[in-house]
């Protein structure tokens, strides 16, 4: 293993792998099933990687969205008899104003309540006939407040108050989004590993198919680094082109089938936006680096086995 690393480092440092040598580029026959296999597989793998990465990025974005959207607010629900409601609400507001970590507290108006309930009861529901609790919207300061302390104070003075800090809703949503993010990333890693294995197999198959080329090169005095570089360049370039094609097709599909107006919606937010698109550049770069390492290791192993 260390030999590979030192050999690769040496080859990179002495520019054998970077330098363009028109003759060397042509010593490996340009056609053959391994050429098509590498191009096709890297395109498919890159295509799948884009979707795995998109899933991961979208999940991360949703996690932040769900977390942020509900993180700094709480709701206080006061249920009381009609003649006591006003007193209870005033008491609750007084308590909230004197609680550190609370920036603002305001009673949600009848119109706002009507709007909130509209999806369930329709626009013309006679809500005034229902004995609805009064809702107080609490905006937290950046430092936040002590939920348990506030609950105790409210229980003492406003017995009908229920404090909802949204944690029980937020936590599973954020957890689900984080799990999706991890799954997406794991899938991307699996795809990358499978690509590495595929490139290694293709490189070894190509070297077996071109044993005559290797024999000729060795006979005329080619160092192992020259032979390896000829295969590494060929496979790295094919992988780069294949992954570029796969990425471009996947990006095209994302653009075509993703509705940008739905980006912020909770369950339809699968897609890329803004700078997320730049992250796709990572895929062909990763595939290229992977091809470089996999082919170099394969070539090194095959050449070593020839002695």
């Amino acid at each position: 293993m260390m030999n590979y690393i030192f050999g690769l480092f040496d080859a990179l440092m002495t520019t054998r792998l970077w330098s363009r040598d028109a003759q060397r580029d042509r010593v490996v026959p340009p056609t053959g099933y391994t050429a098509t296999l590498t191009l096709f597989s890297s395109a498919v793998m890159a295509f799948l990687s884009v979707f795995a990465l998109t899933l991961s990025i979208s999940a991360a974005r949703l996690s932040v969205y769900w977390g942020d959207a509900l993180a700094n607010s709480s709701t206080l629900q006061i249920s009381a008899r009609a003649d006591q409601m006003e007193t209870q609400v005033a008491l609750a507001l007084q308590i909230l104003k004197t609680t550190s970590g609370i920036e603002a507290a305001r009673v949600i108006s009848y119109e706002e309540q009507q709007k909130l309930l509209e999806p369930w009861f329709g626009p013309a529901a006679p809500l005034q006939r229902l004995s609805l609790p009064t809702l107080i919207d609490i905006t937290e300061a950046a430092s936040g407040y002590n939920v348990e302390n506030l609950r105790l104070r409210l229980a003492a003075d406003v017995p009908g108050a229920i404090l909802d800090d949204h944690a029980r809703w937020r936590r599973p949503l954020v957890q689900a989004a984080n799990t999706l993010w991890a799954i997406g990333l794991f899938c991307a890693l699996l795809i990358l590993s499978a690509s590495g294995a595929m490139i290694t197999l293709a490189a070894r198959a190509s070297m077996s198919a071109n044993s005559q080329v290797i024999a000729v090169l060795r006979m005329i005095g080619a160092h192992d680094s020259y032979v390896a570089a000829a295969f590494v360049q060929r496979f790295t370039f094919r992988t780069f082109i294949g992954s570029l094609i796969g990425c471009a097709l996947a990006a095209l599909l994302l653009i075509t089938f993703t509705d940008p107006t739905q980006q912020a919606a909770i369950l339809t937010g699968l897609g890329l936006e803004g700078r997320d698109w730049l992250r796709l550049i990572v895929i062909p770069v990763l595939f290229t680096v992977l091809a470089l390492l996999a082919t170099y290791a394969a070539a090194h192993r095959v050449l070593k086995g020839l002695s």
């Binding site: 040598d21 003759q23 042509r26 005559q212 080619a222």
Partner: peptide, 21 residues
């Protein structure tokens, strides 16, 4: 003989020069 069949004879003859830069 052992040639690289996808290269013409000039490229085959020049191969040792390329290999040794």
């Amino acid at each position: 003989c052992q040639f690289l069949d996808h290269l013409n004879i000039v490229d085959n003859i020049a191969l040792p020069l390329s290999v040794s830069q």
